[in-house]
């Protein structure tokens, strides 16, 4: 635990932090709102006593009540990992500024977070799905995702028949109607 880093962060970002600076093991954690992200990240990246030049990780998180985007930063000024949690993104329309202006390599990590959680990163030039097919409609890592529903709703279901309708005997119009009614 790096107490000096905690003091520096509290002094520099005291007004934008939405919670106390927490420290555990070799990690220091700050929480901010999505609106302050650009300013905080730029300061962390550029200011000489912080110099967090290295983005170790970018993760989307569905906390159940709100969306989060979690950044892990590394700097030679501290032995700790710095965790920046951009908290309280609304679940139905999560939006957050992109950090690709600082780290171009965050582009794919943001694409992944978009693909898995539906978080929109404003400013990312290439925010399309990265793992799931382009016509997929839902976001698999959200806590409200149910696999069976989405597989049935995905366009793939119409092209390749499900096993129940596979054999021609079951594929009579009456059987299809029966299935559609959910019998």
């Amino acid at each position: 635990m790096d107490r000096a880093l905690r003091r520096r962060l509290e002094a520099r970002f005291g007004d934008v932090l939405s919670g106390p600076v927490r420290q555990r093991h070799d990690e220091t954690e700050i929480r901010i709102g999505p609106a302050d992200l650009t300013v905080v990240m730029r300061a962390l990246h550029d200011e000489p006593d912080l110099r967090f030049r290295f983005l170790a990780d970018l993760a989307g998180v569905d906390s159940g009540s709100a969306m989060q985007v979690v950044y892990h930063l590394w700097s030679e000024t501290t032995p700790d990992w710095l965790r920046v949690i951009a908290d309280n993104l609304p679940r139905d329309d999560a939006r957050i500024p992109s950090v690709t202006f600082l780290w171009k390599g965050a582009e794919w990590m943001e694409r992944e977070a978009y693909d898995m959680f539906g978080i929109t990163f404003e400013g990312n030039r290439d925010l399309r799905r990265i793992y799931m097919p382009p016509d997929y409609t839902s976001f698999p890592l959200r806590k409200d995702f149910f696999l069976a529903d989405d597989a049935a709703r995905s366009p793939g279901a119409g092209v390749r028949h499900m096993e129940r309708t596979h054999s021609p005997r079951n594929a009579t119009p009456a059987a299809v109607v029966r299935q559609a009614k959910g019998a």
Partner: peptide, 10 residues
């Protein structure tokens, strides 16, 4: 180069 590598999170 070094700067690009850092920017690309390599």
């Amino acid at each position: 180069d070094r700067e690009t590598a850092l920017r690309m999170c390599m």
